[in-house]
Design a protein around this nucleic acid. Sequence first.
DNA 1: TCTTTTACTTGCGTTTTGCAATTTAAATTG
DNA 2: CAATTTAAATTGCAAAACGCAAGTAAAAGA
Lengths: 140, 140
Amino acid sequence: MGKHRSRCPMNHAVEILGDQWTLLVVRDMIFHAKNSFSELSEMPEGIATNILTDRLNRLEASGIIEKRVDSHDARKRNYSLTRHGLGLIPVLLELMVWSRDHTSDVDVTHAVTKKIKRDREAAVVEIRDRLKQASSLARD
Amino acid sequence: MGKHRSRCPMNHAVEILGDQWTLLVVRDMIFHAKNSFSELSEMPEGIATNILTDRLNRLEASGIIEKRVDSHDARKRNYSLTRHGLGLIPVLLELMVWSRDHTSDVDVTHAVTKKIKRDREAAVVEIRDRLKQASSLARD
DNA sequence: TCTTTTACTTGCGTTTTGCAATTTAAATTG
DNA sequence: CAATTTAAATTGCAAAACGCAAGTAAAAGA
């Protein structure tokens, strides 16, 4: 029903991603190829387990990730990015470039942002390929 | 002291922009050339005035906007984007494209996202120019 | 069987939000 | 110039979200 505050695309993005943790979970899945609860719970910012559970559920509910029971270990849940989740790569890259330009409180080499600025599409493809590799290694 | 949770650029962005309102304030300043409290308080999502005050203060504190008393009306505060604030244009454009691709619950024509995808830099320049025009009209 | 691992869940105090009403100061109007 | 209107911000309070530590359930490993 009165589900959304408006039909503005930025509002839509903010309703899904707008908090202190959601994008960090996505970051770890995209840039660090993490795919389990325990790996994600070790992110350097220190997310609490109840919050992580909640964010993973929300991300699944909004179609950004998929959750499945690991085929080798029934305790494990395997989280993977959907097409829409992978679609966030350009957003994260822009945020990275912005932060790097905005502050020196951040660890990104100039070489990295330079590369992104020079050829964004190539940077996106590179990350997608790295992820594909990681997930094929993870698969038995 | 222990100011930031990490030195990751995405974390930095999230610490500044990661909530339900901040990016909507920036959106209205960038895309709708709004520059006063009352204009911003009328955004379609319905922001409360205490929240708006808080977000404007935070945005100023993090160097994304500047606040000054209007030269013609001492009740008015005039908000303007800094260089760093304008640097968020590419981020907002990527979020717009992502939302448009992610859901149909959003009002963006395909023409708009197509244009952005075809030539991002041109889209950024166009928005910057439009803003420059609006602010020069606003100036006495 | 006993221990460890993985993914949650619970309880509880703190913080942030949302909403309506109110306040302050400055401009406008009659 | 007194009364009204406007712009920005503040206050009070209930509801929701968060942060942390501890606890639980189920499966795996020793």
